[in-house]
Structure formats: C-alpha cells, structure tokens
Design a binder for these strands. Structure first.
Length: 491
RNA sequence: GGCGCUAUGGUGCAACGGUUAGCACGCGGCCCUUUCAAGGCCGAAAUACGGGUUCGAUUCCCGUUAGCGCUACCA
C-alpha cells in the first residue's frame, strides 16, 4: 500500500533524526530500527541526522549515548551523522526563499502578544467556520514595527492540505486550523533573523537530503500538514510519511522514566542480548502478518513492510522482553554468544586468557552451553554460575538450608569425595555410577546426595544437571570442593 | 477547550465481510525430573458501548465513551 508515485527500487532514502538528549530512548530506538529495516529491505540509504538546533543544549558529547545505543542495536547508517547546528545557512536560505515568493512574512508581534493561533469568533451562527486567527502582519500591516520581526509561514486561507501516510493512509487537514508558524526566530542585534525553527530545518534537510520516506513517531502527525505546506512553498514534492505509534508504559501513558528505564543503554548494561532486544522492539508495533514472532535480523529485513506497522500505541512489556532474552540465550549460535559472555566475565574480573583459544576455548564453549538454558541475563554468568569460572565463590545459605538439612549429608559427601577421587575415568556416566553407588550403599535416595552435592560444588541450589557439571568442573576441583565442605562440617 | 489519531483477553500481535475469534508473553494446573529452568499438555481470559449498511459484521459508516498526540520565536 505504499504510494505508487514514491520511488523506484533502490532509490529509497530514509533518516533517523534524534535530538541529542544524551541517550537513546526506546521509542527512538524502535523508530531507528524501522527506518533501518525499511532501508535494508528496499536497498536504500539510511541517514543519521542530529537535530541539535536548540541553542541551549548543543553539546556534541550528548550524541555519544545515542550512537552507542544504535551500534549495540545493530542499526547502522550509510550517511552522517549530520548535525543541524552546522547547517543553519541552508535553513535561512530556504526560509528567505519563502519570504521572497510570498509564502512567508515578517511578523512583528512580540511572542507573548501574538494573537494568531487562537480561534477567531467569526461565523457566530455556524460552529463549522471556526478558524484560527491571523495577525495583521501577514497582510503587510506590522503590529509594532519597532520590534525585530520573526519570519512566519503564511498558511493559505481556506482549503485543505493532504498527504499520504503509509501507516495511517490518506490524511487531510483544514488549513484554517493551522496557525502561521514561525520559520525563523527574530534576530539579535546585527542579524535580520535568528535561528531556524524545527519545521523549517526538518523540511529543508529532508529536501536537501532527498529523503523519500519519513518514518517517525506518531506524535508528528499534527506537524505534518505544516511541513507539507512548506514543501509546496519551496516547490518540492513531499515524501511518503509513515507514522509509527508511540510506546506506552504499563499504565498506558507515554513511556517515561517513571516507568523504569527508557534508555536503551540501560538494557545493554543489564545484560540483555541485542538480538533479543531488537526482535522484541521490532514486534512492538509491527507484525509480519502471521503468528510468527521469532525473527533473526535477516528475516526481519526480508519481512519488514510499512503496512505491517500497527496504528495503535503499544505498551512496553518488560516480561516479554525477558522471555525473548531467555529464548535467544538458548537459541543463539554458540559462537555468537561466547564473545558476549567473555565480555561479561571480563567486567566481572573472572576472565582467564586460557579460554580465548584452543582447548581452553572448547572448555569455555561447553561450559557456556551447559549454563545457558538457566541464564536470564548476561550478568548471571558471573554471579550465580560464578563457581564454574572461579574457585572463589560462596555457598548460598538458602541452598544449604534446603539441601543440607538431612543429618546424613556430611558422611555422604565424605564418601562421595573419596569415591570420586578414586575414579580413573572422568565422564558423565562414571560420575553417575559412582554417585548412585554411594547413595545406594548408604541406603538413601540418589536425589538426596545429588542435591547436596550440587550445593557443595557450585554453591547454588540451582545449577545444570549434576553430572554434566562435574565433567565440566573436572575431577580435581570437584573432589577438592567436596573435601573442603566435609572439613567445614567437622568443625 | 480546539484539532487529530486509536480502540480484539492483563500485555504484544493474527483474523484485512463468513473461523468453535488464532498465536505469544504473563497467570493457574498437570506431565517430565536430580535442583531450577527449558520442553510438552490443559485451563481461565477479548472483539469498549450504541446505532446503522449487509443475507452476514471484529472487519465498512455514524455517534458516544475512553486513551493518547498536537496545540512554543522546543524538537
């Protein structure tokens, strides 16, 4: 359902245009992702543009968080980043073009006394003719010629402005409802005009960058007719718009800090996998059309389309995000997971160089593979499964209380330690047989011994199957840990 | 207030005039079991309301209600 007049394949150009707030908001992240998916799907060009025209906060370092977040998410760009703060001349030129061709005017009204925008009281008998008020400046009658003027767009009287939205369909707005918006702020001492306003700079850039599809948040729907008017005034053809619904918090209000993290990098630091986060985000407000919801990046690109985008705002559901993460933790090719675990262990100070290659790498791979079904977030590798990577770990008191309460546990563990020490072969079955034999001879259920042993060798009540764990830990460590526990009991 | 957008279980999505309204998360139960997950099976749970149009509406139209957005010389 995309506009037929839009583009030939290959010429698609889209952009992600955040303002530098210091971090990448999950809503922005999804907009960026949709732009990126669309660009890849259409073999087009993705552009990153920083909208930093706000004079006050205009620090380049505020952009780093956004770029970091995008990179983590796997969203790349072919051009940019461009900075609007470095393109101000373009905006003024385009604005002056509007002044020259009569589609803009100098407005001398002091901002606080501007009368336009309010509803005029015309047509008393018929409510339908309500329209926005216009100030006299637009008709060449300066309200107070001594003040420095701003440049305002002269919205046509009457008529409507239409545009095509690939998500919401054809839209039409009455011009009489659109106020004469400011293109250029009034200037300081020497200059004629000041900084360009948002509507002016986006349109100028989108024209200049030959953007074909504007994919952005639905909060811009109401801005769109103004921008379309500007395109026309500048003699340019408007692009196809695609407004993406907003992301809400659990209470259905717009997602904000009080709902928890809105910064993508917080999720990165919490240990979510980018693959999982991306899949989750893609499905918030978009569906391929069927019941499938597991998509690797490649499939996402293949299946993405603008008319699969929903028109309803969606709630950010952290529980589902976590579910996606556990799924990816289990299903990701192990070689894609390993580097991420490695990074985590480095952060935790548990990493050993011997795991980087060769036999050490193999061991590392087997161990991560064993652990992954029970991990929820990356940091779990260094915390609850710490005993797999370090001899320095503590035994969880709750685990002791749960599995060491039987009085036979000390003697059982002592016997097991010696049985295992005597093993000449160290593999799953050997450990299994030796352990069950100890339990049998002591006349207890194998489960009692198995659970108690798990606590002794990994310090946790929750861990992978015991005999697999033993194999990975190795005979020496298992026996040593058991003996240490037995000595502890004796004291 | 004005203008606009939206409306399927608690949540995310399917069904784009004809289905016993489907899937997933979450929730409850059962199975499996060596802890905990995973996995398997079962269950509770939805078309906001009211009018039309139609042989037939979740689907199309109108109204109501609700939520959200915009309403700056912010972006």
């Amino acid at each position: 359902m995309t506009d037929a007049s839009a583009t030939q394949k290959g010429s698609v150009r889209v952009r992600f245009a955040p303002s530098p707030t210091g971090y990448l908001h999950v809503g922005g992240a999804r907009t960026a992702l949709f732009n990126w998916l669309f660009a890849r799907k259409e073999r087009g060009t993705m552009i990153l543009r920083i909208e930093d025209t706000d004079a006050e906060r205009n620090k380049p370092e505020l952009v780093t968080g956004i770029i970091e977040g995008l990179k983590w998410l796997g969203v790349s760009w072919d051009e940019g980043p461009y900075y609007q703060s470095q393109r101000t001349e373009l905006y003024r030129e385009m604005a002056k073009k509007c002044l020259a061709n009569g589609s803009a005017f100098r407005c001398y009204c002091p901002p606080e006394k501007y009368v336009g925008g309010d509803h005029a009281e015309e047509g008393a008998e018929d409510a339908k003719v309500r329209r926005v008020a216009r100030c006299t400046c637009r008709d060449g009658k300066p309200s107070s010629p001594e003040t420095k003027p701003a440049l305002r767009f002269k919205v046509p009287a009457g008529g409507t402005t239409k545009f095509f939205d690939a998500v919401f369909g054809g839209r039409e707005f009455s011009n009489d409802e659109i106020k004469d918006f400011v293109l250029l702020r009034s200037g300081k001492e020497g200059e004629e005009f000041g900084q360009a306003m948002y509507q002016m700079s986006v349109v100028a850039d989108d024209i200049d960058m030959r953007i074909t599809h504007v994919i952005r948040g639905a909060d811009h729907i109401s801005n769109t007719p103004k921008q379309v008017l500007l395109y026309r005034a500048l003699g340019a053809e408007p692009p196809v718009f695609a407004h993406v619904p907003l992301i809400l918090g659990p209470d259905k209000s717009r997602l904000s800090k009080r709902h928890g993290a809105t910064d993508v990098n917080v999720y990165r630091r919490e240990g979510f996998l980018p693959e999982a986060f991306r899949n989750f985000l893609a499905l918030l407000g978009w569906a391929a059309g069927g019941d499938e919801e597991f998509f690797r990046t490649k499939e996402l690109v293949e299946k993405f389309s603008l008319d699969g985008v929903s028109r309803t705002n969606g709630v950010f559901d952290r529980a589902k995000l976590e579910w996606f993460n556990t799924q990816y933790l289990q299903k990701l090719p192990i070689e894609d997971l390993l580097p991420q675990v490695e990074e985590q262990l480095k952060q935790d100070g548990l990493w050993k160089e011997e795991w980087a290659a060769g036999a050490g790498r193999e061991w590392f791979s087997r161990t991560v593979d064993l652990l992954r079904p029970r991990v929820r977030l990356l940091p779990d590798f260094g915390s609850w499964s710490r005993a797999f990577f370090s001899d320095e770990f503590t035994i969880d008191p709750a685990a002791k209380a749960k599995f060491w309460k039987d009085e036979k546990v000390p003697i059982l563990l002592a016997k097991l330690a010696e049985a295992l020490a005597g093993l000449t072969e160290w593999n799953h079955d050997a450990c299994d047989h030796a352990s069950r034999k100890v339990a049998e001879e002591a006349g207890v259920k194998a489960g009692l011994l198995i659970n108690a042993t798990r606590v002794a060798i990994v310090g946790q009540a929750v861990a992978p199957p015991l005999f697999d764990t033993m194999v990975v830990l190795g005979q020496e460590r298992v026996v040593r840990r058991l003996r240490a526990v037995v000595i502890g009991f004796a004291k």
